[in-house]
Each structure stands twice: as structure tokens, then as C-alpha cells.
Amino acid sequence: SEIVVAMYDFQATEAHDLRLERGQEYIILEKNDLHWWRARDKYGSEGYIPSNYVTGKK
């Protein structure tokens, strides 16, 4: 599975969105859409994140 790191904070506005915290790692579950990826955080929460807010883990 692909691990990404959040470059920016993202506040979830929709129920299906996942909040991003800058510097935290997330697991990508689905990339069915170019701009919104389904991800899981370290607490096990899942939701959609803006793909341009994250970068591949170095």
C-alpha cells in the first residue's frame, strides 16, 4: 500500500472527507478520482483527501 505525507492541513467539510494534519502519514486506499483519493489515517479513520495536499513518502 502507498504511504503519503500531508504537506498542508485540510479541514474535512463533508462527512466522507478525512482531515489532514501537516506532516502526518496516510495510507492510500483508492485513487479512482484524480483530485480526491480515499485514505486512512493512523487512528483508522477513512475518507477522501485532496490529492494535491499530499506527497509520496521519501
Results as ranks from 00 to 15, higher is better:
residue 7 M to W: 06
residue 51 S to R: 08
residue 11 Q to N: 13
residue 34 L to D: 15
residue 41 D to S: 03
residue 36 W to D: 02
residue 3 I to E: 05
residue 4 V to E: 01
residue 12 A to C: 10
residue 2 E to P: 08
residue 42 K to T: 07
residue 47 G to L: 02
residue 3 I to A: 05
residue 23 G to I: 04
residue 40 R to C: 08
residue 30 E to N: 10
residue 37 W to I: 03
residue 43 Y to I: 05
residue 38 R to C: 12
residue 20 L to G: 01
residue 57 K to V: 13
residue 39 A to E: 03
residue 8 Y to R: 13
residue 58 K to I: 15
residue 48 Y to W: 12
residue 35 H to K: 10
residue 33 D to V: 04
residue 57 K to P: 10
residue 47 G to K: 00
residue 27 I to F: 10
residue 12 A to R: 06
residue 28 I to R: 00
residue 4 V to I: 03
residue 16 H to V: 08
residue 31 K to P: 02
residue 40 R to W: 04
residue 57 K to I: 14
residue 1 S to G: 14
residue 34 L to F: 10
residue 54 V to S: 02
residue 13 T to N: 11
residue 53 Y to N: 04
residue 45 S to W: 09
residue 45 S to G: 12
residue 39 A to G: 05
residue 44 G to T: 02
residue 7 M to K: 10
residue 37 W to H: 03
residue 29 L to C: 05
residue 35 H to I: 13
residue 49 I to S: 01
residue 30 E to K: 05
residue 46 E to H: 04
residue 30 E to I: 08
residue 19 R to F: 07
residue 42 K to M: 12
residue 8 Y to W: 12
residue 56 G to D: 15
residue 9 D to S: 10
residue 29 L to V: 08
residue 42 K to S: 08
residue 7 M to S: 05
residue 22 R to D: 04
residue 3 I to C: 09
residue 53 Y to P: 01
residue 22 R to Y: 09
residue 57 K to T: 11
residue 41 D to E: 00
residue 57 K to G: 09
residue 17 D to C: 15
residue 17 D to H: 15
residue 55 T to C: 13
residue 51 S to Q: 06
residue 47 G to S: 01
residue 13 T to F: 09
residue 14 E to N: 15
residue 52 N to M: 10
residue 40 R to M: 10
residue 35 H to C: 15
residue 56 G to S: 15
residue 1 S to E: 14
residue 7 M to N: 07
residue 50 P to G: 03
residue 7 M to R: 09
residue 21 E to Q: 10
residue 5 V to N: 03
residue 1 S to K: 12
residue 14 E to S: 14
residue 9 D to T: 06
residue 20 L to C: 03
residue 28 I to L: 08
residue 33 D to Y: 10
residue 31 K to S: 08
residue 54 V to F: 04
residue 13 T to P: 10
residue 16 H to R: 13
residue 49 I to W: 02
residue 25 E to L: 10
residue 14 E to P: 03
residue 19 R to K: 13
residue 55 T to F: 09
residue 18 L to F: 06
residue 17 D to L: 15
residue 5 V to E: 05
residue 1 S to Y: 15
residue 19 R to E: 10
residue 38 R to S: 03
residue 32 N to T: 14
residue 58 K to T: 14
residue 24 Q to V: 06
residue 52 N to L: 09
residue 13 T to G: 08
residue 39 A to P: 00
residue 35 H to V: 12
residue 31 K to L: 04
residue 7 M to V: 10
residue 14 E to K: 14
residue 32 N to G: 11
residue 52 N to F: 10
residue 17 D to E: 15
residue 39 A to L: 04
residue 56 G to L: 15
residue 34 L to R: 13
residue 53 Y to G: 06
residue 15 A to V: 12
residue 5 V to L: 07
residue 58 K to H: 14
residue 48 Y to L: 13
residue 11 Q to F: 14
residue 48 Y to N: 08
residue 33 D to G: 11
residue 36 W to R: 11
residue 4 V to K: 02
residue 2 E to H: 11
residue 12 A to T: 09
residue 14 E to C: 15
residue 5 V to Y: 09
residue 36 W to N: 06
residue 20 L to A: 00
residue 23 G to P: 00
residue 40 R to Q: 09
residue 18 L to R: 01
residue 5 V to R: 06
residue 1 S to R: 13
residue 56 G to K: 12
residue 47 G to N: 00
residue 7 M to Q: 07
residue 28 I to F: 01
residue 46 E to Y: 03
residue 36 W to S: 07
residue 41 D to T: 01
residue 10 F to D: 00
residue 45 S to K: 15
residue 10 F to M: 07
residue 24 Q to H: 10
residue 13 T to V: 14
residue 24 Q to L: 08
residue 31 K to C: 09
residue 36 W to C: 10
residue 6 A to F: 03
residue 18 L to C: 07
residue 18 L to S: 01
residue 28 I to W: 01
residue 10 F to K: 08
residue 19 R to P: 14
residue 18 L to W: 03
residue 39 A to M: 02
residue 30 E to S: 10
residue 8 Y to V: 07
residue 50 P to I: 04
residue 55 T to V: 13
residue 53 Y to E: 02
residue 6 A to P: 00
residue 44 G to S: 03
residue 13 T to K: 13
residue 50 P to V: 03
residue 55 T to D: 08
residue 41 D to H: 01
residue 16 H to I: 08
residue 54 V to E: 02
residue 6 A to T: 01
residue 34 L to S: 14
residue 43 Y to H: 12
residue 7 M to I: 14
residue 51 S to P: 06
residue 37 W to S: 01
residue 32 N to Y: 11
residue 15 A to L: 12
residue 46 E to I: 10
residue 32 N to A: 12
residue 33 D to F: 09
residue 39 A to W: 02
residue 28 I to S: 02
residue 18 L to Q: 01
residue 2 E to L: 11
residue 6 A to Y: 04
residue 16 H to E: 13
residue 3 I to R: 08
residue 22 R to M: 12
residue 57 K to F: 11
residue 23 G to T: 04
residue 22 R to G: 06
residue 51 S to C: 12
residue 35 H to M: 12
residue 30 E to L: 06
residue 5 V to M: 08
residue 42 K to C: 08
residue 13 T to Q: 12
residue 13 T to S: 11
residue 33 D to I: 05
residue 4 V to T: 04
residue 29 L to I: 12
residue 39 A to K: 00
residue 18 L to H: 02
residue 16 H to F: 11
residue 40 R to L: 09
residue 48 Y to R: 13
residue 14 E to Y: 13
residue 21 E to I: 13
residue 41 D to C: 03
